[in-house]
């Protein structure tokens, strides 16, 4: 599903050029659950941004679902992204002005799904994630765990092939964290590919494979299953 080869990304300021990704090559197969670990600044987040088509690499190749996407313009990236990829963030990133229902509905709106279908699918997902009773609440009225559930619901509502999770448990206590990890595992079991960046060895153990990064390239891979 994902094949990146010799991927490069630099950040430039006037004085300094920082290499974020240095000839990184990784492959993720469909249905895999991969955890990416490494110290701060090793390029995990940059990798995730490129995988999520939020950022463009400066060099190398990125084949997504058999298509070379490096060099795609913003419009094409956005189009591919909204159809195929769901995101879960450490800080949930829900829109404060929208209710739970409306937040989850958002990806469907951008995918031009009809209102009746949207309602059905959002309710299905909320039901699955056991937050149906919170559907008319605003994010600030929810606990962190509940907010992350909503974020997960939003990530999966469009049935994406790939979910990218950026430290999904970072802002949660351990019991809420475990619940979220459980959710991701269940999604993976149903066939969704997951790439998760994490600092937590505990969370990483939910995955099939751990990629460890340092200074912009992968150092080791532990296969857990």
């Amino acid at each position: 599903m994902i094949k990146i080869t010799d991927l490069e990304k630099y950040y430039r300021t006037e004085e300094v050029e920082t290499i974020a990704l240095n000839k990184l090559s990784i492959e993720v197969k469909e249905g895999e659950f991969v955890a990416v670990m490494g110290p701060s600044g090793c390029g995990k987040s940059t990798l995730l941004n490129i995988l999520g088509l939020l950022d463009d690499p400066d060099g190398g190749s990125f084949v997504f679902n058999g298509i070379e996407v490096a060099g795609f313009n913003e419009r094409k990236r956005a189009d591919l992204r909204k159809k195929n990829i769901g995101f879960v963030f450490q800080s949930f990133n829900l829109i404060d002005e929208l209710t739970v229902f409306e937040n989850v509905e958002l990806p469907l709106i951008y995918n031009n799904v009809k209102a009746a279908d949207r309602k059905k699918r959002v309710e299905e997902v909320l039901d699955n994630l056991k937050i149906m009773h919170r559907r008319n609440h605003y994010p600030q009225q929810l606990s962190g765990g509940q907010q992350q559930r909503v974020a997960v619901a939003r990530a999966v509502v469009n049935n994406p092939k790939l979910i990218l999770a950026d430290e999904p448990t970072g802002n949660l206590d351990s019991s809420n964290g475990n619940e979220v990890m459980q959710l991701l595992t269940e999604l993976n079991e149903k066939g969704t590919t997951i790439v998760m960046v994490t600092h937590s060895e505990h969370d990483a153990r939910y995955s099939h494979r751990i990629i460890r990064m340092l200074d912009g390239h992968s150092v080791t891979e532990n296969i857990l299953i």
Partner: peptide, 16 residues
Amino acid sequence: AKEVGIRKVVGAQKQS
């Protein structure tokens, strides 16, 4: 900015 980010992540085009 956050709202813009989220909307872009879930697929909004700049023009929208």
